[in-house]
Design a protein around this nucleic acid. Structure first.
Lengths: 107, 107
DNA sequence: TTACAATATCAATATATGTTGATTTATGGA
DNA sequence: TCCATAAATCAACATATATTGATATTGTAA
């Protein structure tokens, strides 16, 4: 029950659904890319990324001071179905801004 | 997005997951059966049933003063997967008390 | 070591959601 | 009609969660 509710409550927020979808579409992103692309302040983004990671949807890989988030693989059946459902939502997704490649973050 | 989040937020509560599972296992139940079986006060139960109904998981059929709730059929793919997931949770399910058959409700 | 950048966490506040007891609505019977 | 029962809704309160700005942590380079 706990694990199920953890997955569910992680999905129970429009911001996090957007983040999941964005990473699903664009692949691995570092936090500052997400900040730039989704126009969210850092503490807010960091919080939601942590919730999605703890619920088993995302994984993090640290490279120096950067943290790269991607969809965790493999996802179990239910999380996979949830992600599939999110793929079919009509969401206006902002374009990816690769701030980390075009001259560093400094956001 | 709205519809998806409505489904998710309906599932985002241990009480409602229990109610869903209980009705899934026992079939159609009236509110006073649920009250007796799950030991919940009426207003609390009624609230959660409404949320599950509005989210598309349950349907109601009124028979006189009684309201009978059952799993809505057919469920769409995602709701169906969610229900399937709930079937595999290790939940201690109280036995059904058919108060409505054994001499009326009067709870 | 010091400084700085990226990220994580904390504290305060605002908003949403759950619980309860009281009230209201709807239905059926005397 | 009047009353009783089942169920829904309301109001007050408690708890949980999101947002923000500030602070702490971590890693890198001078």
């Amino acid at each position: 029950m706990e694990v199920f509710l953890k997955s569910i409550s992680a999905l129970n927020d429009e911001t996090r659904v957007l983040i999941l979808r964005f990473i699903d579409v664009n692949g691995e992103c570092c936090v500052c890319d997400l900040q730039a692309s989704l126009e969210m302040i850092q503490s807010r983004l960091s919080r939601h990324l942590k919730i999605l990671k703890d619920a088993g949807f995302l994984r993090v890989e640290r490279k120096g001071t950067w943290a790269y988030y991607s969809i965790r693989a493999p996802l179990d059946r239910f999380r996979s179905e949830a992600l599939e459902e999110i793929r079919y939502l009509s969401v206006e997704l902002p374009p990816l801004k690769k701030s980390s490649e075009t001259g560093g973050c400094k956001i």
